[in-house]
């Protein structure tokens, strides 16, 4: 497997790059990391982590809303403004998750694996 991977460029979702680039992030790994590899034609191997990452539009809005919620709650954490701000975060987090699911449905590897979960390409590894 090691030799098969030589010279292959691996694409990493943005969330991973962002996670390692941010120093202020707590040292907690994403809850579940799954890795899948797929042999695509002769000698080409694609490998990526987890499912698709959130579209940047929603992702940006969400991290913005988290900052706003933290600010809105700094004065009074029991205020309606604070609750409304965190409610917006929840709404966007749910929208982000739905958007990822939608992308997953249009992913050829995911669809292949739905039909052929037992194949090598579709094995998942929990970290």
């Amino acid at each position: 497997m090691a030799s098969a991977l030589t010279g292959v460029s691996l694409s990493t979702p943005a969330t991973f790059a962002a996670a390692t680039a941010r120093g202020d992030r707590p040292q907690v790994a994403p809850a579940r990391v799954t890795l899948r590899s797929m042999v695509m034609g002769r000698g080409t191997v694609a490998c990526r982590a987890g499912g698709p990452s959130t579209p940047p539009g929603i992702s940006d809005k969400m991290s913005e809303s988290i900052k706003e919620a933290q600010e809105a709650c700094s004065e009074d954490s029991a205020s309606g403004e604070c609750a409304a701000a965190w409610d917006e975060v929840e709404e966007l987090s749910a929208a982000a998750s739905h958007a990822r699911d939608k992308l997953k449905e249009s992913d050829p590897l995911e669809n292949y694996c739905k039909e052929n979960p037992e194949t090598d390409e579709c094995r998942t590894y929990d970290s």
Partner: peptide, 27 residues
Amino acid sequence: WKIQRDMAERGHSLESIKASIEARKPD
């Protein structure tokens, strides 16, 4: 479940997930 859903999202942390659940809880 929300950790599973959100933890890999940029900007989210254990604290933000917890804060969101707690702020929405009274309603």
